[in-house]
Each structure stands twice: as C-alpha cells, then as structure tokens.
C-alpha cells in the first residue's frame, strides 16, 4: 500500500529528476548521430570563445552577491532583532520581505525602470554617479553588481526574516548574562549571535551559490532591452540555450547543462552530508 502512496511522486522523480539527468549524460557523451563521442562535446564547449567569459561573468556576479548577502543579511537581521519597538521591528521585516514577491522577469523589469536615468525614481543618484542614459548604466563592466543588486533586492528579505527567527531561538538568558557581564551590543552580536547563526548562514550561502550559477533571466531580459549591448550569451545557461536553439547542437547544450548540474549536485551533496541541517532520519 505504501507503494500506492509514493507511486505518483516516484513517477515524477523518475520523469523529471532522474531521466533528464541521465539523458543529458547520454547526449553529452555522444555525437549528433548517437555515436560515442568521448569528451569531445566538453572540449568543444570549453574551448568555445564564449565559454570562459561566461564563467567569469557568473563567477564575478556570485562573489559580489554572496558577500553582500552574507554580510548585509546578518547585519540587518541582528539590527532588526535588536529593535525593541514591536511594530517597528515587524514593519522592518515586512518591508524587507515584500520584494520577494517580485521574482524572475517582473523584478528585472522593475529594475530596468530604476536603472533608466530618464524615468528612474533615483535619477538624481544615477546622474551623480555619472550615468545619463540607460545604455551607460548597463555597460558589461557594470552588470555583475547590477545583477547582484537585483538578486539582493528580491532575495535578501526572506533570509532576513529567517535569520530573525533563528535569533529568536537564542535563549534570552544567554544574552542577558552577557549583558550583565558588560558585553556591548556589538560584542554580543559577534560572540554569541553570529556564531549561532552560522548554520543558517551556510545554508543561505550554499542555496544561493547553487541558484546563482543558473543566472539566466536577468541577462536575457537585459540583452533584449539593450538591443544586444548585453550579449545573449552572457551567462552559462544562456550559452547552453544558444547551443540548443540557435545552433541546434543538443549535445553541446547537454554538455554545458551537465557541467552546471554537476556543480549544483556537488553543492547539495556537500550540504546534505556535512551541513547538519537535515540530521533527521
């Protein structure tokens, strides 16, 4: 009977988890006639002149985003937690969290407005930074921080709310004892609160790292909105998309997908085995 309960889900796991992964492996190691190709597809995509720039773009974006995320989310969570006025604390959390509703294309579109000096609500700031047109804002060198800002704007709030919850789990007695011993607010944050958040911070870091390698919708929309000033092969996922749909090279697309999948799998495996968050069972 248990099998009946898990049958539909198992079918979905096989159809949309296991099989596509296996099929991608098959395609990545064969040529377009189905013959075994060894690592030819991998050498082809890796030596593609667009591959290394795409890796560099994604890597730079990830570094900026993850550092900002870890530092700022920890800081804001601790500060919000220290706010004693209840309605203020609640309002702050709500304000941080709400942008999370705008994910994907909607948030990118919103930021296109914000970054366009002609219409932007912060056009003064943009002009001050020396930008007078949209095209100047989105020159390739600016894109990693731009994408990091968009991702931070949509994603940070949820994590702040979660860290806040984790901070609430720290016993008030511990904090009170530290305070009596003369610890300042900063010391309490550094010595007690941040170490206790470490597990959550690493969870956030790994989930964000895995998701960040998949960068697609942001550069895709920007490429469209900028008349291809932003190239349509800016990120790895876009490059895989180009292979599949512009060059009809499914084997090459599968090779890139597989590289990305291996990274995601490795990260999640490290997390499941070492993270300690899923100790149950």
């Amino acid at each position: 009977m248990s099998y009946g309960f898990v049958a539909p889900y198992t079918a979905l796991v096989v159809a949309f988890g296991v099989l596509p992964a296996l099929y991608a492996v098959f395609l990545a190691f064969t040529d377009n006639e189905g013959g075994f190709a060894g690592i030819a597809n991998f050498t082809k995509v890796v030596s593609d002149f667009r591959f290394l720039p795409a890796v560099a773009h994604v890597a730079l974006y990830l570094v900026i985003w993850l550092v900002a995320l870890v530092v700022l989310v920890s800081f804001l969570a601790v500060v919000v937690h220290a706010v004693r006025v209840r309605w203020l604390s609640r309002t702050l959390r709500f304000v941080f969290y709400l942008p999370g509703a705008l994910a994907g294309a909607s948030s990118v579109l919103l930021w296109l407005f914000v970054l366009d000096p002609t219409a932007s609500p912060v056009s003064g700031l943009l002009h001050m930074l020396g930008f007078s047109s949209f095209v100047q804002v989105i020159v390739p060198a600016n894109l990693p921080p731009v994408f990091a800002i968009i991702a931070f704007w949509t994603g940070a709030g949820g994590w702040i709310v979660i860290m806040y919850g984790a901070l609430n789990n720290i016993s008030p007695d511990v904090i009170e004892a530290a305070r009596i011993d003369g610890a300042t607010v900063v010391q309490i944050a550094r010595r007690i609160q941040l170490p206790m958040l470490r597990k959550w911070i690493s969870y956030m870091g790994i989930m964000s790292l895995a998701a960040g390698t998949q960068l697609f919708v942001e550069p895709q929309l920007l490429s469209q909105a900028s008349n291809a000033i932003v190239p349509n092969d800016y990120s790895l996922n876009q490059l895989a998309y180009q292979y599949a749909f512009q060059q009809n090279d499914f084997n090459g697309a599968a090779a890139i997908s597989l590289l990305l999948l291996v990274i995601a799998l490795a990260l999640s495996a490290v997390f499941v085995t070492r993270g300690g968050l899923f100790e149950k069972d």
Partner: peptide, 17 residues
Amino acid sequence: LIVMLIPNTALVLPIFL
C-alpha cells in the same frame, strides 16, 4: 533531499531535450 537542493533551472534544458 538531493533534487530538492538543485536549483530548478538546472534541469530545464535536460527536461526540454
């Protein structure tokens, strides 16, 4: 647990294929 932690975009192209 493992597939849960894979970002859902990672399998999109394989599923397309």
